[in-house]
Amino acid sequence: MGKKMSAADITYNVLCGIVFAVFSIICIFPFYYLFICTISDPSLVEVGKIVFLPKGLTLKNYREVLRLPNLGNSALVTLGRTVLGTASSLFVTSYLAYFFTRTEMWGRKFWYRAVVATMYFSAGMIPVYLNNKMLGLLNSFWIYIVPGLVGVYNMILVKTSMESVPAELEESAVLDGAGYLTRFTKIILPLQKPILATVGLFTAVGHWNDFFTTQLYITKPKLYTLQFLLYEFQNQVKNAASQINSASEAAGVGGSNIQPTGIRLTLTAIVIIPIMLVYPFIQKYYVKGVMIGAVKG
């Protein structure tokens, strides 16, 4: 039989429910608002007449965006860099973190500090551009992979997690003759799933959202990422709408009905949907992973 709740308990539960419901709505409403704006009449969105319910239901924003040339190719490029970039970054970052947990590593403290120092100091955009140019990465798919192989912050998280692994586990492998790579791949790495999921999520989101790399280093459309394509489209729509509306004056007619705000929101929706679909599957690792990485021992 269940415990009978007192009036105070019920009141407390109701109040909690109301408060959390309000907070939940506050968190969820922006996504809901985003979605209803993308399926509402663009001109109503522009003047702020869409509040709680969609009006003038239409899919023309999605049709406009999905009609973009080169959309399929750029989606493939984005997917490729996200998968390959995340996998390679995870492996390289975690292997580097493993090195720094080895006390026998020569100059360990010095190299660790040198690597961490790069978090605080940067040469700036131009030297980085010149460095990448010197490495032959301009207009190459590898610009999306190579510069991002090591994330120092991620490396620190993984290293902290690895240090919590008992040394005895590795010692027995050493006695059996296992080398560093074997111990790393067969003993250490499997125990780092939570932190790797966390770091992997950070990295994957970073790859998915990045358009700056394309903007700076790529001039060939076949290497455009989805984000960059959509960013360029949004700028063109914004500029075209202002120009076309002005040029329509002499003919006494209205201008383009593809309004920039609607496009902006549609682009946002298209870009965040994949991340929102992936996130629930790794959420269980996320909090645990962050805490493991943050707390030593």
Binding site: S43, E46, N245, N257, Q259
Partner: peptide
Amino acid sequence: VQKAKVET
């Protein structure tokens, strides 16, 4: 938004 209110 101003543009939309005025022109559209």
